[in-house]
């Protein structure tokens, strides 16, 4: 089970959860597992072809998965997956 941190902008679609635990051996497994559990997140995270939307960054611990093996990046139980969509608010 990897920890997944859900950003504030997506929490409404994730039943208000800030962090959840999702099973999976790759980042892709975890992201798809997350969408399976909270279908409302699907549009925000994934494009029609199942790839990550370009305005969403996913980090394994503190590393951007674009510079690892993207959704194929292996995850271990102790890892934290951080989902981070762009935000623009200047308040």
């Amino acid at each position: 089970m990897s920890k997944v941190r859900i950003p504030p902008v997506l929490r409404a679609q994730a039943e208000g959860n800030k962090q959840v635990e999702i099973d999976g051996s790759t980042v892709g497994d975890v992201v798809h597992g997350l969408v399976q559990r909270f279908p409302g997140l699907g549009d925000q995270l994934l494009g029609t072809d199942g790839s990550l939307n370009r305005f969403v960054n996913v980090y394994l611990n503190d590393q951007d998965i674009r510079y690892l093996q993207e959704l194929g990046t292996p995850v271990a139980a102790a890892d934290t997956v951080v989902i981070l969509p762009a935000m623009a608010g200047g308040a």
Partner: peptide, 8 residues
């Protein structure tokens, strides 16, 4: 890329 307005 920027997200669509409803997502941000």
């Amino acid at each position: 890329a920027a997200p669509p307005p409803e997502l941000a």
